[in-house]
């Protein structure tokens, strides 16, 4: 492994990498136990830096608001089977932080647009996506075409994490598909953005299925004749 990438661990732990390098590092991390260990311990050092920053107290109402919000919003319950895989916690944390950070922006944008239904839908997607990515029992399925990975939970919910896909051109959209034998099920649209795309695949993925992405005209199609840009290996 290149020393250069390992050295990025400090920048990653301090959120100081530029988006390109952040992506490089996150792609490197699953395969590098040394970086995982280093990141875990650097995050603890970052905790100390957070303590050193502490000063004024939050307003007295903040605790109550958090608890009230939590009460109004039931947790996503992901079936859990204990596993002793040493690499999982830090990767789960990285995936969850990335998911919340990336998807939170989409949520914020739709709230600004004033469309409450959009905001609710975005929130629901964010919640489901975060749950799949943070599920330590989820499997990572490599891609045959395209750069990134497919994360599949035990319950068949799936999330596509794509690196370096350009935003869809004007008038176009990306469409996700689940290939189930000969069937091709439309599984959601997304516009694509610079950096990492994290997309929840609509529907349920079962063993042997392939998840793919095509470029379609705005609005999407029921059946595509286009060649997939992204395709997973069979789940």
């Amino acid at each position: 492994m290149a020393t250069g990438t390992h050295e990025l661990t400090a920048g990653y732990a301090l959120d100081a990498l530029d988006s390109e390098e952040r992506r490089t590092y996150e792609a490197h991390l699953p395969d590098c136990v040394r970086c995982q260990d280093e990141l875990t311990s650097f995050w603890e050092t970052a905790d100390a830096l957070a303590i050193a920053a502490s000063g004024p107290e939050p307003s007295a109402g903040l605790r109550g608001r958090i608890l009230a919000d939590a009460r109004a919003e039931p947790q996503v319950v992901v079936p859990f089977e204990p596993r002793r895989r040493r690499t999982v916690p830090v990767l789960s944390a990285v995936a969850a932080v990335a998911a919340v950070a990336a998807l939170g922006v989409g949520l914020w944008a739709s709230q600004v647009a004033g469309d409450l239904d959009d905001a609710r839908a975005a929130l629901e997607r964010e919640r489901q996506t975060a749950a799949v990515l943070a599920d330590s029992t989820a499997r990572t399925v490599p891609l045959e075409a395209g750069e990134g990975r497919l994360v599949v939970g035990q319950d068949g919910r799936a999330v596509l994490v794509l690196n370096g896909l350009d935003p869809a051109p004007p008038g176009k959209t990306y469409e996700m598909w689940i290939f189930e034998g000969d069937e091709m099920l439309p599984s959601g649209l997304f516009a694509g953005e610079d950096g990492v795309d994290i997309e929840r695949v609509d529907g349920t993925v079962t063993p042997g299925d392939v998840v793919a992405v095509t470029l379609e005209n705005e609005g999407g199609v029921e059946v595509s004749k286009n060649e997939p840009i992204v395709a997973s290996t069979p789940v």
Binding site: W43, A70, V78, P89, A131
Partner: peptide
């Protein structure tokens, strides 16, 4: 709230809840 929402899936043995919050 992010921790609350996905706590059931976030099984941290080494990356702790407080670290996750601060991160």
């Amino acid at each position: 709230l992010a921790v609350w929402r996905s706590a059931a899936g976030f099984r941290a043995e080494r990356a702790k809840a407080s670290t996750w919050i601060l991160t």
